[in-house]
């Protein structure tokens, strides 16, 4: 599992140097007339051995430190509950309004702020999702690819609090969200969670492409529609049949388009923060399937430990040198 590696293995040519301290002690020699008269002493032999090993160890540790010893980055297969999920967030300017359709004042919360708060809670909950983030307004914004790094996802979600940009162009956003998923089959489910407060007409070209991709990639789609008070819902049919077209009621037609995709699809209409919370809890509950995913453990530099070991060994050698008999 662990995999050790060096950045500059050419330093290892210095390894024979580690034999030097084993051969000679770094102390000045004191002439002695006859060894046979020196009493055998265990403590002295222990000090002798420790000095030799400290010398060899110091050189070895310095060499390993200089050559950049590290543990390589590796991936672990883990099984968890969650899904591959792309959060597709609406960054249109209207998201900065409150649910009442006004610029938030006083204690009111804007739609984007509510969505940010609740989605943050959703992401930091104990799920093992692979989450990607994409946003769209007039054009799609690539924010974050699929990752298990929760901090990055949270940061991307927090970015929703920044003021919105312009229009709502949902088909390009969907296309981008779908492009996050590769062609390979996956163990967990693939989800696109679309959070928007409006919709736009899907042009025929995009429609064809989206139909194909949704089908091919096996996507499950959730749409949380943040309904502003007084606006049209996605489920209600207009009273006036003349109004029943994509230009007048883009939300309804987008819903119809999604329903006709023949994929698992659910739409929620959230008229306030609580409704949004319920919708998110619903998604959370439904998408709890076993998921096998690979977690990347980043590279770990071990140079600091090498240098620490070398420093300790050298400290012992210096101490021994200070204890040397002066002649």
């Amino acid at each position: 599992m662990t995999d050790w590696a060096l950045d500059m293995p050419q330093w290892l040519w210095g390894l024979p140097l580690t034999l030097l301290p084993l051969w000679r002690l770094p102390l000045r020699s004191a002439p002695c007339s006859w060894h046979a008269l020196l009493p055998a002493d265990g403590a002295s032999r222990a000090v002798d051995l420790s000095l030799r090993l400290a010398g060899a160890g110091a050189i070895l540790a310095l060499l390993l430190g200089s050559s950049g010893l590290h543990r390589r980055e590796y991936t672990v297969e883990r099984t968890g509950y969650g899904a591959h999920m792309v959060l597709l967030l609406d960054r249109s300017r209207s998201m900065d309004d409150s649910f009442a359709g006004r610029t938030p004042a006083g204690g009111e919360e804007s739609k984007s702020a509510a969505a940010e708060r609740l989605l943050s809670g959703f992401v930091s909950g104990g799920r093992n999702d692979l989450v990607g983030v994409a946003a769209f307004s007039t054009s799609p914004l690539f924010v974050l690819p699929l990752t298990e790094n929760k901090a990055a996802v949270l940061a991307a979600v927090h970015a929703m609090k920044l003021p919105g940009l312009a229009q709502t162009h949902v088909s390009k956003g969907l296309a981008m969200a779908l492009s996050y998923f590769g062609d390979e089959p996956t163990a967990g489910s693939r989800i696109v969670l679309l959070v928007s407060d409006g919709a736009a007409e899907v042009d025929p070209d995009s429609e064809l492409k989206l139909r194909r991709w949704f089908k091919e990639k096996g996507i499950r789609l959730y749409w949380i529609f943040l309904r502003t008070a007084g606006s049209h819902g996605i489920f209600e049919a207009p009273d006036n049949p003349e109004d029943d077209n994509a230009q007048a009621r883009p939300e309804r037609y987008l819903h119809l388009f999604f329903s006709s995709l023949d994929i698992p699809y659910r739409a929620y209409e959230a008229e306030d923060a609580d409704a949004l919370k319920r919708a998110i809890a619903d998604v959370d509950r439904e998408e709890q399937r076993p998921l096998r995913y690979a977690e990347r453990v980043p590279r770990r530099d071990l140079q600091a430990f090498c240098y620490l070991a070398a420093a300790l060994a050298l400290a012992w050698l210096v101490a021994a040198k200070c204890m040397e008999v002066a002649r």
């Binding site: 002690l25 020699s29 004191a30 002439p31 002695c32 403590a43 002295s44 000090v47 008999v325």
Partner: peptide
């Protein structure tokens, strides 16, 4: 003297480290 001494035999050159202390 007390401390560490690398005793070198004057005739055969063998070395031994002695930790000279009162007991020794």
């Amino acid at each position: 003297a007390s401390g560490l001494a690398r005793m070198q035999d004057m005739e055969n050159g063998m070395e031994r480290l002695m930790w000279l202390r009162p007991a020794l």
